[in-house]
Design a protein around this nucleic acid. Structure first.
Lengths: 112, 112
DNA sequence: AAATTATACATAATTTTCTTATGTATCGGA
DNA sequence: TCCGATACATAAGAAAATTATGTATAATTT
């Protein structure tokens, strides 16, 4: 995913957030959008991305539609109803996580 | 470390930050301080903590002094000179990481 | 007084999650 | 024509945690 190990465990909520904000997306598009949004900081590797997307599909968090763009396949992912519920939970956890990091890294300025 | 997988990869910079802010600390103290600071959100497990501290010592990032508190041992850790340099780097990476998370989770309000 | 919880260290087995490497295939630009 | 970008996929290995276990002392609760 990235040079730094920091992102470990954050990939799933990141993808859920992307799908929540942008609706239907395909895998490669997710990697590019994350790279753009983070100004090149976060580069999702394919070896992390695709297995995770497959897992989320198995779990019924996302559903897929395969389309052809010219001669090239695109597999579009979107959140299921269960996936939207799961995303809400994941976002709450992310908020708490980020707040905790603030407490530690910025003990003075972090809001109580 | 925590119920949530989010913290994976963040433990090392968290410990470095603690040592930077509070100087000499022993392992158990670190777990309690992190729990306090994060209002119970972040519970460092011993299985994650001690092997990491040992690794940091091997790498010359921290140095140790063992003291007795009554009949109980405490192994105090503090940053070496190299450790302080390493901590500065780790904190820069943390800042970039947290900013990237903001971009993704709060695309509207996140500062450019 | 006995049992439980907290303090304080440590390690081993396992699981989770990612990186690196590899593979297939199409498309556009130099 | 070759290279980089697009677009998917999987396998082997590494990194970083969890869970379980172990030792031992101190404080608190029942």
């Amino acid at each position: 995913m990235k040079n730094s190990a920091l992102y470990k465990g954050c990939l799933e909520p990141i993808l859920l957030r992307l799908l929540k904000d942008h609706g239907r997306m395909y895998g490669y598009q997710m990697t590019q959008m994350v790279k753009d949004i983070t100004k090149g900081e976060l580069n999702i590797t394919e070896g992390a991305l695709y297995p995770l997307l497959h897992k989320l599909e198995e779990q019924g968090i996302v559903e897929t539609e395969t389309e052809m763009n010219g001669n090239r396949m695109r597999k579009y992912y979107s959140l299921t109803k269960a996936g939207k519920k799961q995303t809400s939970i994941a976002m709450e956890e992310m908020k708490a996580f980020m707040q905790s990091l603030e407490y530690i890294v910025n003990p003075k300025t972090a809001l109580g």
